[in-house]
């Protein structure tokens, strides 16, 4: 099963490499990973999506908690949560494909953020499966480049991950 694990950690040099190292060292899988400082400049928030059974995910959270730089760990997928990912995708857009791509883009509520005579760059925000769906909906359009931010997520309601 896919899990979204959020980690609050000290914004120290080397902290990220400890987390990434842990995953490779213990043979845990990383689907995506994002990290950035929070409103408190001494803390970073890292979100990692991983696939594993309950036992593996339990080990992942326990092992993350053991890292000295890690302050808190939560498995967002255990409760109600919202997840988002940003994708930018550069497409060949000429002739009748221009209108076709624009239509698909509107259906998915994407934005065209850069245009040339022969290309479009589309920005799309949503859950990862929505981004996947957009790529398959493009059909015959020719993709030149894709960049995705990786998932970030937050719990619904009153629940917060903070100190």
């Amino acid at each position: 099963m896919r899990h979204i694990i959020s980690v609050l950690m000290e914004n120290e040099p080397g902290a990220l490499s400890r987390v990434v190292g842990l995953f490779s060292q213990r043979n845990f899988n990383i689907e995506s990973l994002t990290v950035a400082p929070t409103e408190d400049a001494t803390l970073s928030r890292l979100t990692v999506t991983t696939i594993g059974n309950d036992r593996v995910v339990e080990q992942i959270t326990k092992q993350l908690n053991k890292l000295i730089d890690v302050v808190k760990v939560v498995d967002l997928s255990e409760g109600e949560h919202v997840e988002r990912e940003v994708m930018m995708i550069k497409l060949k857009a000429s002739g009748q494909m221009r209108a076709e791509i624009k239509r698909t883009c509107d259906i998915f509520r994407g934005q065209i953020i850069d245009v040339t005579a022969t290309t479009y760059t589309v920005q799309l925000v949503g859950a990862s499966d929505k981004l996947d769906a957009f790529i398959s909906a493009l059909g015959s359009a020719s993709i030149m480049e894709v960049v995705r931010s990786g998932v970030c997520g937050i719990a619904r309601g009153e629940k917060v991950l903070s100190l």
């Binding site: 040099p13 080397g14 490499s17 400890r18 190292g21 060292q25 000295i68």
Partner: peptide, 16 residues
Amino acid sequence: MLGISRPVVKHNFSVQ
């Protein structure tokens, strides 16, 4: 040394 020792230490520090 921080990188080399990372998987085999409880923690490591670099003096800045």
